Computed example of a mutant assay.
Amino acid sequence: MRILICDDDTLIIEQLKKYIESYFESNHLKCPELVSFTSGEALLTDKGEKDIVFLDIEMPGMNGIYVGNELKKANRNVIVFVVTSYSEYLDEAMRFHVFRYLSKPLDKQRFFRNLKDALAYYNSITLKIPVETKQAVYSFPASQIIAIEAQGRKVIVHTARQDFDSIHNMNYWLEKLPQNSFFQTHRSFIVNFEHIVDFDHSTVHLSNPQITAYLTRRKYSSFRNAYLLYLESMR
């Protein structure tokens, strides 16, 4: 993982570095590579992976709104934090799906909470899940799994690529999948929040229109709350 910081204020860069290093140290985790830039132009010329980016809005030359849009064009999964004193840019920043909006001066505890959410989201979209069938073992990011469906004794893993007949049961998948991104809506269905289009009290419609998951009434409230919490964490 690489975490990038782009701000024309070197004091803010140092503060962000200090907070990031402190977070990883306090959680007994290895700190990832930290790279800093003082201009949007320099950031965009960087050829390395861009996993999490802390981005100032008001900078000479390319402003953060332009840079954020370019980052998202290159990689829609990049996690962008907007760090600025100017709240009037919030609406523009939200258009390129900024992950969080952090106001200056930075509050350390709020920063830690938001970084924790970002790392959980990063793990959910990059975590490789093995799908074992009778013929072979396939591996792909959890984000590509749309739903797990039980049809009698058969368990089908619906993915964005194709469907797979898993040799494992539903309990296995409940333990294997990241709990912040998946929910068992019915004994026959586990759905990925990322692929939900809409839902009512009995059904959940997913990004693949051929898959409709059942939603039991007794689970409706807990499912709704978990989904809204997921959406909130994606803002």
Rank of each mutant, 00 (worst) to 15 (best):
V82A: 03
A93G: 08
N75F: 06
T133Y: 09
Q109D: 11
I145C: 02
R113P: 03
D91C: 11
F99Y: 12
S85V: 10
P130A: 09
I146L: 04
E88P: 08
R76K: 15
R110N: 14
S103G: 13
V137R: 10
P130D: 09
E92A: 10
Y89M: 07
A136H: 13
L102Q: 04
K108L: 12
Y101R: 09
K134M: 13
A142S: 10
A142N: 05
R113F: 10
V131F: 06
Q135P: 02
V80A: 04
A118S: 09
A93I: 09
V78Q: 00
N69Q: 15
K128A: 11
L127W: 02
I129C: 07
Y122R: 08
V78A: 02
N114G: 07
Y121P: 01
N114S: 09
Q144I: 03
V137K: 10
Y101G: 05
N69E: 15
L127I: 11
Q144M: 11
I145K: 00
L102Y: 06
V83E: 00
D107N: 15
A93D: 05
A93T: 07
Q135W: 07
L119K: 03
E88K: 15
L115S: 01
E92I: 03
D117N: 13
L115Q: 00
V98S: 12
I129Y: 03
L102F: 05
K73E: 14
V98A: 15
V83M: 02
V131S: 02
Y122G: 03
V131Y: 03
S103C: 12
K134V: 10
R76Q: 15
L102K: 03
K134L: 12
P130T: 05
N114K: 07
E132A: 12
S124K: 01
D107S: 13
N75Y: 10
P141H: 07
N75K: 12
Y121H: 11
L115P: 00
Y101Q: 05
I129F: 06
V83G: 00
P105C: 07
Q109I: 10
L71Q: 02
P141E: 06
Q109G: 04
I145G: 00
L106M: 10
F96E: 01
Q109F: 07
Y121C: 07
F99W: 08
V137L: 10
T126Q: 11
Y101F: 15
K108G: 11
R110D: 14
I125K: 06
D107I: 08
D91T: 14
K73A: 15
V78S: 01
V80T: 05
I146F: 01
A142K: 06
I129G: 04
R95G: 04
N69K: 15
F140W: 07
V98P: 04
S87P: 05
E132Y: 05
Q135S: 13
T133F: 08
S87E: 12
P105R: 06
N69T: 14
S85G: 12
R110P: 00
L106F: 06
Y86E: 07
A142G: 03
A136V: 04
A118G: 08
D117V: 07
L119T: 01
I125P: 01
S103N: 13
S87F: 08
F111W: 03
L90H: 09
